[in-house]
Simulated scan of single mutants.
Amino acid sequence: MTVWEIPLRADARTEDLLGGDDVLALVRALHTGTQIFSSSRMSTVMGMPLVRVDPTRVRPASPDGAEGMLTILRTLVCPWTEEQPEPRLRGFLQRDPDRLRLYLDRGEDPDVAAAADVRTSGALTALLAALPSLIEETEGPPEGDPHCSRLVDLTSW
C-alpha cells in the first residue's frame, strides 16, 4: 500500500485547481509502469510509504475501455438523482473491449424490452442522457440473442 500526496494546485504560481478527472488521470499514471521518485519526495506515514507527487512531472494517463464501461454501468445503476433511471438496466454483456450490450426495460413492462450496443470509449455523458429516447428507435429483433426483443446499435452515436 502506498499513500500518494497529490497537491490540488498543479502549479503554485496559479490559482487553478486540479479537477477530479485530473487527479484520476494522475493516479492512473502513478499505477502504470515503474515510477522513480527521489528520496526527498519519500517518507512514511502509518507504516506505509508516502510519495509527494509533483503533478508537473507526471504525465496524466488516459482512461481505458474498462473505465468507460464502469462509468456507464455506475451511472445507470446509481444515478445522481433520487428518481430511478428510466429505462432500467437489467443486465449487460461485454462484447469486446470497446463494446458493451446493455439490456434495458421500462418500469411498466418488466420484460427485457430492448438492448443497446454502446462504445465504452465514446461520448458517454451525451449517450447516457439520450439513451431513453434512443432505445425507442427499434432496429428489429437481434439474431442469436434470446435476451431481448429488439436491438439498437449506438456504437457510432
Rank of each mutant, 00 (worst) to 15 (best):
S38R: 12
W80P: 09
G144E: 08
V58S: 00
E67H: 00
L8W: 06
E83Y: 05
S121V: 12
G144I: 06
P142R: 04
P141G: 12
M42E: 11
V118C: 04
L100Y: 03
R9E: 10
E82R: 11
P7D: 04
D153C: 04
L124A: 08
D64Q: 11
S62C: 02
V27M: 09
A113W: 11
G65A: 15
W157T: 05
P60L: 08
T2D: 06
I6G: 03
L102K: 00
L30S: 07
R57F: 08
V118D: 01
W4I: 07
P85T: 04
I36L: 09
R90E: 14
I6F: 06
D22F: 06
H147D: 12
S40V: 08
V53I: 15
Y103G: 04
D11A: 00
S39F: 07
E139R: 09
T75K: 01
V112Y: 10
L134E: 12
L104V: 05
T56D: 11
A10N: 03
D64S: 06
I72T: 00
P110Q: 12
T34I: 12
E143Y: 04
L50C: 05
P79E: 07
L26W: 00
P146T: 03
L93A: 14
R101A: 05
P97D: 10
V51P: 02
D153K: 05
V58E: 05
L151E: 00
G47T: 08
R106Q: 13
E82S: 07
T56H: 06
A113S: 14
A29E: 08
A10E: 13
D64N: 14
V77P: 00
L127H: 00
I135Y: 05
D111S: 13
G122S: 14
D98F: 05
Y103F: 14
L131H: 02
D64Y: 03
W157N: 01
R41E: 13
T71R: 15
E137T: 10
V53F: 01
L134D: 07
R57L: 13
E86M: 14
S156N: 12
W4C: 09
L76D: 02
W157E: 11
G20F: 09
L124E: 03
C148E: 06
E15F: 07
R74K: 15
L128N: 01
V45Y: 10
T14I: 01
W4L: 15
R74Q: 15
P97E: 10
D16Y: 05
D22S: 03
M48S: 10
T2S: 09
G144T: 01
I72G: 00
A129L: 07
P141D: 09
T2H: 05
P49R: 11
R101Y: 05
V23Y: 04
R99L: 07
